[in-house]
Design a protein around this nucleic acid. Structure first.
Lengths: 184, 184
DNA sequence: GACTCCTTGTAGCAACTGCTACATAGTATC
DNA sequence: GATACTATGTAGCAGTTGCTACAAGGAGTC
């Protein structure tokens, strides 16, 4: 592996941590370069442009996310929707996963704003979410799997969004309250 | 009312439409000025700085939103959580309200990023949401009203977030599927 | 008419944005 | 040792950002 490729990998790794820590707040080329410990000149030697940097880093983050989701709720026995939501909610509002979900909300907003690499990233991550739900969802024949999957994802993402702008204490009670809202 | 105050009002009105149409995508001072039909120099004559412009416009938008929410689901007979969610979901995913919710998602993300006027705006709008839910929520004595309100808001906001990055066809089925997920 | 205040235009500044031209040092190949 | 390719630094460009200094026209008051 060339030095360049090795550096690419190292930069992606460091920037994944950076994005998870700071969201999209510090993502100018110079700020990214500093966080990665290289010069901005070199960042654009390793990557074609800023969009490629962000796309590579977000791909890494998305991979990590799907890995953790798969670990937390494996593809074993399918779960009824309410139970799936409960377990997914408990997981994504956990201390380590919150930064993933926060970043996810920011990325969706960036995509809504039409910023270059994010629309594609959102489509890809969203497809991953759908697939994750689909392989774990126990639904009666004839039910709307796609619609139900979308609804489940909406609930999980909604928790993340409200989590961003609430005190910890209320956020903790939110998941519990949600549980009682769900049918069996 | 001085010319300045009259212009302030007119500018706020026009920019509210601009934000609802384009989200936070075109919000540089010069872009805002153009959308408002004034020079950027004058925009900063009417308002102290950019943050004050956005705060004023967002306050207008938030007022409009709460007005419409109050109209759509008046503060009459309290509703059980599931029914409240159903009706709120039907309303906020309606064609006219989607741009409000999309802007809301963007604003939350901006607040998460720490951008100047948005944290305060989010806190204020969120409090409005909570109050709106609280005055319409039929809950048994001893239940966690705050937690339940947060959960309800989360579900509504989650629909909006997924709505942003889905095809219309799936988004329409999502609300229906959500309804069957809810307990009575 | 002089004075003052409200309103508006022109011009520009310093900082930051993404990105690039150019030079150079090293390293590998023949 | 000449040549070519990889890797890195220095410097800077053109565009955008939020914001401001300065001047001047107009309107009202003395």
């Amino acid at each position: 592996m060339s030095i360049r490729d090795a550096q690419r990998e190292a930069v992606i790794e460091r920037l994944a941590g950076h994005l998870l820590a700071h969201g999209l707040a510090r993502t100018s080329l110079r700020q990214l370069a500093q966080a990665a410990g290289v010069s901005d000149r070199m960042l654009l030697y390793y990557f074609a442009d800023k969009a490629e940097v962000l796309a590579a880093v977000m791909a890494r983050v998305a991979g990590e996310l799907s890995l953790r989701l798969a670990e937390a709720i494996p593809d074993g026995a399918p779960l009824k929707p309410a139970e799936l939501v409960r377990r997914a909610a408990a997981f994504t509002t956990g201390p380590d996963m919150r930064r993933f979900m926060r970043l996810w909300v920011e990325v969706v907003a960036a995509a809504a704003r039409g910023e270059a690499p994010f629309s594609a990233i959102v489509a890809q991550v969203m497809a991953g979410f759908r697939h994750w739900v689909d392989t774990r969802l126990d639904l009666p024949e004839g039910a709307d799997r796609e619609g139900t999957a979308a609804a489940i994802i909406a609930v999980i993402d909604g928790l993340a969004l409200v989590d961003i702008c609430s005190e910890d204490e209320i956020a903790a009670r939110m998941a519990a309250a949600l549980s009682t809202l769900l049918a069996e």
